[in-house]
Structures are given as structure tokens and as C-alpha cells.
């Protein structure tokens, strides 16, 4: 198998799948952001549809439930004029003996043009991209702990629109980095786009081993990690972490890592606060901050549709270029 970052590119370096932000060039990531920017203006119009994916069939293939992410992909596909089919395949379907390969072969018989895939296994989107018929684009909507590249790109868009540029920003990502595909995708995108420093903050139990190898500096205390930050990204804390001896309690986590106005004061005065949602108020962030002036959390949601439109349009166009070349 080849490296994920190569599988997602055509021979001339254009996007044909979107599996990970890792290994993509600064130009390509910037092109995604620019394209998304252009779609934001179309969304402000009364007629929001553009015909880029007219006649194409997009299948939302969700092996893990996620109403929010699935809905934004559905809206994005519709605004690109594609036909969309939602398939919620609970994990139980595959445990009944049907393998992921069986599922794929069945779906291919429907002649779809794009799969938007969410799966609990790291590497699942990459696996599917290597197995599907040529011409079918795969968009990773989250694979295990590995990557959630559209979420990361909408976060990049949020930073760029509020801070004008990503270059030079000091960004801290706080909380459960170990289980976070969002954090991994953010770290790669931030480094490629020229962030001055990427920090991760959390207890040792929630920071993955050798995280520095990914290009993030580890901090264990908010007092150290938030100092002089331009951007603070809070991650959602899953309740099951308490059962797995990773944390003693939500209250102790909030005491140490919960973002309060007091802690936020350590960052730069114009720092922005982000969260991929859904928020656990009082666990990772207090309401005063989540709803405060520095919070850009609600803006993030509306940019999500534009970013997903951008990568869907770019990947479909990459597939067509490759098909024409052959």
C-alpha cells in the first residue's frame, strides 16, 4: 500500500480523494480554502446551488453515527446539484459477517461517483480508496483516530477569516489529543500552512506517545501552553474516558484544562476560541467563554458546508481529469 497522501492525488498532483491533510502541499490546502471562500459568497445568495456536481451521485457512507457531519455533507452535495444517498450502516451489519469489502462491492453496483465515508477504524477511508473502482472519489468524513480532514480545513478557514492568515499564528489544541482525529488533521494542516507554533495541552494520559514527531509541542499545564496563543482550539471530552483510567473525573479535568475567562486571559488579548462541537459546557469550556466575544464556534459550522463543497468539487474534477487522461 502506498502512503495516504499519495493515494489521494492524481499523477499531476491534483486532489482526487480527500483522505488526510498530511502530505498535501501548501498550494493545494490554500486552493481548498480559496475555493471554500468563493462558495461562502454563493451561500449568501438567494439561489445557493451551483451545478458543479450535476448528474453525479454521492453516497454518504456512515459506519459511525454522526448527524451533524452527515447533514453538512448532504447540504454541500445538494448545493453542488448532486444526487445524494444516505446510508447509515451500523457496525452491526459488518459484524453479521458482511465485510467492508462486501459492502463496497454492493455499493459499486449502484454506479455512484463519490463516497463520503465515516468509519471507526483508522485507515478505513484509505483502504476504501485503494479498493474502489477507478473514477470513484472518496472523501474522508472521519476514520478512527486518524484523520478528519474536512473538519480541520473548516478550522483553517475559520482561522484565516478571523486572523487574515495562518502563517505566524501560535495555536494551542487542548484536551483529548490521544483519541482525536481532528487534532491530528489540524496539526498537519497548521504546520503546512505556516503556523508559528502548534501546541497540544493535556494530561499525559491524553497525549499520544511521540506527538512531537507530528510537529506539535506538548504542554501539560494550561498556564504554560496558553501563554501568548493566537488561537485556542478546545476538543470535546468523551464521557467514556473516565471509565478507562485516563481521567479521574470531569470536575478535575475542568479544573485543570477547562477553558475559563481567567485561563483565556493568558492567551493574547485578541485570541480566538474554537471548538469542533458538540460542546460539553462546564467540562471543557465554560459558557461565558463559549458564548463570549472571542468565541468563533458558531461561525465554524457555517464554514463547514463551504469547505465540504470545495473538496467535493475538487476531488470530482480530479477524478475527471484522470479519466480523460486515460
Amino acid at each position: 500500500m502506498t502512503h495516504p497522501s499519495q493515494v489521494q492525488l492524481t499523477a499531476d498532483g491534483r486532489l482526487k480523494h480527500f483522505l488526510t491533510t498530511e502530505g498535501l502541499s501548501r498550494e493545494l490546502l490554500t486552493e481548498i480554502l480559496d475555493t471554500a471562500d468563493s462558495f461562502i459568497s454563493t451561500q449568501e445568495r438567494a439561489v445557493k446551488k451551483v451545478p458543479l456536481l450535476r448528474g453525479k451521485t454521492v453516497v454518504n457512507l456512515f459506519f459511525e453515527n454522526s448527524t451533524r457531519t452527515r447533514s453538512t455533507f448532504e447540504l454541500a452535495a445538494k448545493r453542488l446539484s448532486a444526487d445524494i444517498l444516505n446510508l447509515d450502516i451500523a457496525r452491526s451489519a459488518t459484524s453479521k459477517g458482511e465485510t467492508l469489502m462486501d459492502t463496497l462491492w454492493n455499493l459499486e453496483a449502484m454506479y455512484s461517483d463519490m463516497f463520503v465515508v465515516r468509519h471507526a477504524d483508522s485507515g478505513a477511508a484509505h483502504f476504501i480508496a485503494e479498493q474502489v473502482t477507478p473514477g470513484v472519489a472518496i472523501i474522508n468524513a472521519g476514520d478512527g483516530r486518524h484523520a478528519h480532514p474536512t473538519q480541520a480545513m473548516l478550522d483553517m478557514l475559520t482561522i484565516r477569516r478571523h486572523k487574515q492568515q495562518i502563517e505566524g499564528q501560535v495555536v494551542a489544541i487542548v484536551g483529548d489529543i490521544l483519541h482525536s482525529r481532528v487534532a491530528r488533521s489540524q496539526i498537519h494542516a497548521l504546520n503546512t500552512l505556516g503556523a508559528a507554533e502548534v501546541r497540544v495541552i493535556g494530561p499525559a494520559t491524553l497525549l499520544p506517545r511521540d506527538i512531537e514527531a507530528l510537529g506539535a509541542k506538548a504542554y501539560y499545564r494550561m498556564e504554560d501552553g496558553l501563554k501568548d496563543c493566537d488561537v485556542v482550539i478546545m476538543l470535546r471530552l468523551q464521557k467514556e474516558r473516565m471509565q478507562n483510567a485516563l481521567l479521574p473525573s470531569e470536575s478535575e479535568f475542568f479544573k485543570l484544562y477547562g477553558l475559563t475567562e481567567q485561563k483565556l486571559a493568558l492567551a493574547k488579548p485578541d485570541a480566538i476560541v474554537m471548538h469542533p462541537g458538540p460542546i460539553n459546557r462546564g467540562v471543557e469550556i465554560e459558557s461565558a467563554v463559549a458564548d463570549g466575544e472571542q468565541s468563533v464556534i458558531l461561525n465554524q459550522v457555517s464554514y463547514g458546508i463551504a469547505v465540504r463543497m470545495a473538496v467535493m468539487a475538487m476531488a470530482m474534477s480530479g477524478q475527471q481529469t484522470e479519466e480523460n487522461a486515460q
Binding site: 498530511e22 491530528r184 511521540d210
Partner: peptide
């Protein structure tokens, strides 16, 4: 480092 990168 590889398991961290791949999220495995």
C-alpha cells in the same frame, strides 16, 4: 511515532 501518526 507511527502509531500516533496513523491514529492506530
Amino acid at each position: 511515532p507511527v502509531s500516533t501518526r496513523l491514529g492506530l
